[in-house]
């Protein structure tokens, strides 16, 4: 009888325990981003001088924090479904590399930037936009990271906005025209060309 009366309470307690455990596992996106940025900064500014290009050295860090699949899927947009699974895999590989190199390029070894964290905006239940102010060489820039909670509970970056310019949106504009003209193969080719250019284009 006693047991029966306390059963709902017990059930509630059990449920709460499970939920709390879940809460502890799922780290706040702000904390995840801070850790990621710290790791990138450590690679860029604290590691011993190296001949290896920065984009290669930061790759392991970014692979932990960036959702390259999600970034590519969003940048390609609704046409994503027109790509065969093989083309999709290739697109993620190529565009991931473009993103990686572009991002690494932003960190120039002249001076360590100062980063202050700002507001976190809830875009939807599983998406957040996290603002930063980056001070570099006497100027301040506003940078924002968009993060999404993955089915596993962890948070990954799916877009970076610099001074309000979204990287994903910027590539979406470029990709749309290319897809319209030449379809998925033209898109893959343009990415390959771009990677070759990045490697050879030295201003």
């Amino acid at each position: 009888m006693n047991l029966l009366r306390t059963l709902p309470l017990r059930a509630a307690l059990a449920a709460a325990t499970v939920l709390c455990a879940g809460a502890l596992r799922a780290e706040e996106p702000a904390a995840v981003l801070r850790r990621g940025v710290d790791e990138v900064m450590a690679v860029v500014y604290d590691s011993a001088p190296s001949e290896t290009p920065l984009s290669v050295r930061v790759r392991p860090v970014l692979e932990k924090y960036f959702d390259f699949g999600g970034i590519t899927r969003r940048a390609v947009g609704p046409s994503w479904r027109q790509l065969s699974p093989a083309q999709q895999t290739r697109a993620v590989e190529l565009f991931g590399e473009v993103v990686l190199r572009t991002y690494a390029d932003r960190f120039q070894p002249k001076e360590r930037p100062t980063i202050s964290y700002g507001a976190v905006v809830e875009l939807s239940a599983r998406r957040r936009e996290l603002a930063q102010t980056v001070g570099y060489l006497g100027q301040n820039y506003s940078v924002a990271y968009r993060m999404e909670q993955q089915p596993s509970g962890g948070w990954l970056v799916y877009d970076v906005l610099i001074e309000g310019v979204s990287m994903v949106q910027n590539y979406r504009g470029q990709f749309e025209a290319i897809l319209q003209k030449g379809g998925p193969e033209a898109l893959l080719k343009s990415l390959e060309d771009n990677l070759r250019d990045i490697a050879t284009k030295t201003p």
């Binding site: 507001a119 976190v120 102010t133 100027q139 909670q149 610099i162 310019v165």
Partner: peptide, 20 residues
């Protein structure tokens, strides 16, 4: 290239808490 504007004044916001 998104480079020249001064920094926005960002109010330190509360991290929106996703409930479990």
């Amino acid at each position: 290239a998104g480079c020249l504007a001064a920094a926005p004044q960002l109010r330190a916001g509360e991290a929106a808490q996703a409930t479990t």
